[in-house]
C-alpha cells in the first residue's frame, strides 16, 4: 500500500507537547497569523507533518509553510518565518 503525503497530515494538537517544551505554556489555543496569506488560525487547526526530519507546519488556508521545528542533539532549531504573529495567553 502506498502511503500518500495527505495520509500523513496531522494537526497542531499533535505538537502541543513539543511547543510546551519551547514556549513553556499551552500553545494549541494560540492564534497565529500566516505570513503568506494573513489568515488567522488556532495552532490546533494548522496542518502538521511529522514524517520529515523535523516538524513542518503549514497554513490550512494557503498551504504555505508557517513553522519548522527540529529537535536533536540537545538543541532546538525553530523557524517561525511563516508566522507573522503568535497571540497566546500569559498563563
Amino acid at each position: 500500500m502506498t502511503v500518500q503525503q495527505s495520509d500523513l497530515k496531522l494537526d497542531g494538537n499533535a505538537i502541543g507537547g513539543l511547543l510546551r517544551e519551547i514556549f513553556t505554556m499551552e500553545m494549541t489555543a494560540a492564534i497565529g497569523t500566516c505570513a503568506h496569506c494573513g489568515t488567522l488560525h488556532a495552532v490546533g487547526e494548522v496542518e502538521v507533518y511529522m514524517n520529515a526530519p523535523g516538524v513542518v507546519v503549514r497554513c490550512p488556508s494557503c498551504g504555505e509553510v508557517q513553522m519548522k521545528v527540529v529537535r536533536g542533539h540537545g538543541k532546538y532549531w525553530l523557524d517561525l518565518s511563516g508566522v507573522r504573529c503568535l497571540e497566546f495567553s500569559a498563563g
Binding site: N13, G16, G17, E26, T28, V43
Partner: peptide
C-alpha cells in the same frame, strides 16, 4: 508520561 497537553480541542 507528561501532560495534560492541549487547549484547543477541549
Amino acid at each position: 508520561l507528561r501532560g495534560p497537553i492541549g487547549g484547543y480541542f477541549v
